[in-house]
Structure formats: structure tokens, C-alpha cells
């Protein structure tokens, strides 16, 4: 098969990796951003850590793999994207670093000061990535001012326009809802019930923000163009609204697993919406579409894409299989006793 097929295939896989990352790390980042809202006591905060303990690290590997796949399949896009977004990416990195260490170290020394300091790191390190990822994707959808050489013609403030900030706030509330649903599923009572109640509120805010975001994307970006050309694709955003509408229904009947799964599905469909809108761009230029990095002008060679495809076909199912097993084994509700030792 020819190069164009593999370029398209890797664009799809790129989207799948981002969707996987956002749907999975989304809940543990969200849970972390609610540390002080939901964790009324040290014991409850400990329960929040413990709820995400077995999962956060594996979830973050999706980000590493998404980055690695960008590097491997679309090296030019990786090079321009990462160097143009230098400051926001390093901020994301530092946030994830202190957060990861906070999760690992918080309960390994008995001192309230020690725990309080790591709690701050965990909270900031969870909230900031949600915000930055939203800003990142909104910038991706809108395009960034890169010239014909791929040099960024603005600074950090130029990337923080209102549309990007809306994206950031949307991600924060979406992840918070996703995290609260996970806590409703795993945390001991009464934390679980409080999480469920909070999820109802943040869900409503997320729902409104999403509608608004989809609407103004029509003014700020070209993301709806592909949907206008192929109206059948509109099934994706419609389906997304439907899956999200089911979330509060499940919360009300206390089916938190279902609520969480539908929240995850919504995130996947949101990513699909964005990716369909971007195609075939990986990084659109807001100066001139001719400067945009697309799957055609920034991909790896046919041989590399073929080898990567073989690796993905064999190993991604294996990864999904043991990830599923780990989730099945550790998604039980935590008991109070288990949180205390």
C-alpha cells in the first residue's frame, strides 16, 4: 500500500493515542485538581491518592507514547510543535514531574508538614496540566502563527488568547467531572457520595462550556470545514453530546462505573471531533495555510511507517489487554481500613 494510506493511518493512530491519554490521565488529573474541594481531612486526601495510585503512572505513558508516535511518524511536526510551544510544554513537564513525585512520596514519611507540601504539589501539578492541555489543543485547532520555516512569530502571551483559555477551562471542568466520577466509584464513603454530588454540578458546567466551545470554534477556527464538506461526519459531535447527556442519568441511578465510562467516551469523541476537524493538518499555521504542517509534508518514510504499523498491530492489543486486567483488578471500592495503612 502507498505512503498516503500509512500517513492517514498514523494520523488516526495519533488521534487514538491522544484520545487514550485524555480519557485515562484525565480522571487522575481531575481527581488531583479536586484534592482540596473533596478531601476534607488528611484521611480523605489520602483516599484520593489511593484511588488513582495504581493507575496514574500507566496513564501518563499514553502521553509519552503520543509524543513518541509524533516523533516517529511525523518528525517534522514533532520538531516544530515542541520547539514552538517550548514554554507551555516545559510548564506541563514541570507540573507532571512534581505531581508524580508527590504521589509517590506523600505517604512515605510521617509528618503533617511533609504531607501538606506534597498536597500542594499534587494539586498544582494536577490542575496545571489540565489547563495547559486545553490551551494546547485549542491552539492546535486554531493554528499557531508559524512562518514558512516553521518559526513561531509570537510569544507565550500570544498563545493565551481567549479561545485557548476557554479550551483550558473546559478541560479543567471536564477532567474534574471525570475524576469526581472515578472517586464516586472507588473512594470510601462519605467521600464517594460527595464526589457524586459534585460531579453533577461540574458536569453541568462542562456541558455548557462544551456547547459554547463547539459553537465558537466555528468563528475562531476552521475545525468545522471538514464537517461541512462531509456532513455524515457530524455523527461524531452529535454522538458526543448524547454520551455526555447520559452521564447525569447514570449518576442519579448510582451507576458510577457507567457514568465514568460515558464520560470517558465523551472525551474520546471530543478528541475524534478535533482530529477530524484538523485532518490532514497536524499543526495548522494561522499565518498562511500553505505553511501548515500536514501529514503529507511532515511524515516519516514509508518503511518507518510500515515498521511502526507492525509494532502497533502486535503490541497495542497486548497493552490494552493487560491494562484492562489491571483496571479490573484494582478498580474495587477502597475500604476505610485500606486507606489508613
Amino acid at each position: 500500500m502507498d505512503l498516503e494510506f500509512y500517513q492517514t493511518l498514523w494520523f488516526v493512530l495519533w488521534g487514538v493515542l491522544w484520545a487514550g491519554y485524555l480519557a485515562l490521565d484525565g480522571f487522575d488529573l481531575g481527581a488531583g485538581s479536586l484534592l482540596y474541594v473533596l478531601g476534607k481531612s488528611d484521611q480523605e486526601r489520602r483516599a484520593i491518592y489511593q484511588s488513582i495510585g495504581p493507575f496514574w503512572d500507566g496513564n501518563e505513558v499514553w502521553l509519552i507514547t503520543a509524543g513518541g508516535a509524533t516523533f516517529a511518524a511525523f518528525p517534522t511536526a514533532y520538531a516544530v510543535m515542541f520547539s514552538s510551544l517550548y514554554t507551555p510544554l516545559l510548564l506541563l513537564l514541570f507540573a507532571l514531574i512534581i505531581r508524580g513525585v508527590a504521589v509517590e512520596y506523600r505517604n512515605k514519611y510521617e509528618s503533617p508538614t511533609w504531607r501538606n507540601l506534597w498536597d500542594i504539589a499534587f494539586f498544582v501539578g494536577s490542575l496545571a496540566p489540565a489547563l495547559l492541555l486545553g490551551v494546547f489543543f485549542a491552539n492546535l485547532f486554531k493554528g499557531i502563527p508559524i512562518d514558512e520555516k516553521g518559526i513561531l512569530q509570537t510569544n507565550l502571551l500570544g498563545l493565551l488568547h481567549p479561545y485557548a483559555l476557554l479550551g483550558g477551562i473546559l478541560f479543567v471542568f471536564c477532567f474534574a467531572t471525570h475524576g469526581a466520577l472515578w472517586l464516586a466509584l472507588r473512594a470510601p464513603e462519605p467521600l464517594a457520595s460527595r464526589s457524586a454530588s459534585l460531579a453533577k454540578i461540574t458536569w453541568a458546567i462542562t456541558f455548557v462550556l462544551t456547547g459554547f466551545f463547539l459553537l465558537i470554534s466555528g468563528f475562531f477556527t476552521n475545525i468545522w470545514q471538514n464537517f461541512k464538506n462531509y456532513p455524515i461526519l457530524s455523527i461524531v459531535p452529535i454522538l458526543m453530546i448524547c454520551t455526555y447527556l447520559l452521564v447525569p442519568v447514570f449518576i442519579r441511578s448510582a451507576k458510577y462505573l457507567h457514568a465514568w465510562i460515558f464520560s470517558a467516551l465523551t472525551i474520546v469523541l471530543f478528541t475524534a471531533w478535533g482530529m477530524i476537524g484538523l485532518f490532514p493538518n497536524l499543526l495548522p499555521s494561522s499565518i498562511d495555510p500553505a505553511y501548515s504542517l500536514t501529514i503529507y509534508n511532515s511524515s516519516s518514510s514509508l518503511l518507518t511507517l510500515k515498521i511502526m504499523t507492525i509494532v502497533a498491530v502486535i503490541f497495542v492489543p497486548v497493552v490494552l489487554l493487560y491494562t484492562y486486567w489491571a483496571y479490573k483488578t484494582f478498580s474495587y471500592r477502597l475500604s476505610k481500613e485500606e486507606v489508613s495503612y
Binding site: 500507566g58 505513558v61 509519552i64 507514547t65 513518541g68 508516535a69 516523533f71 516517529a72 511518524a73 511525523f74 518528525p75 517534522t76 514533532y78 520538531a79 516519516s300 518514510s301 518507518t304 515498521i307 511502526m308 509494532v311 502497533a312 503490541f315 497495542v316 497493552v319 493487560y322 491494562t323
Partner: peptide, 17 residues
């Protein structure tokens, strides 16, 4: 990227997960 990037991506897929 064509060579080095793919090795990193394979590392993540095979080992990090």
C-alpha cells in the same frame, strides 16, 4: 526522526506500559 523517533516510540509501546 525517521529512525531515532521510531526507536523511542517502540520503547514506549513495548516497555513503558
Amino acid at each position: 526522526g525517521d529512525i531515532f523517533g521510531s526507536l523511542l516510540a517502540i520503547e514506549a509501546t513495548l516497555a513503558f506500559f
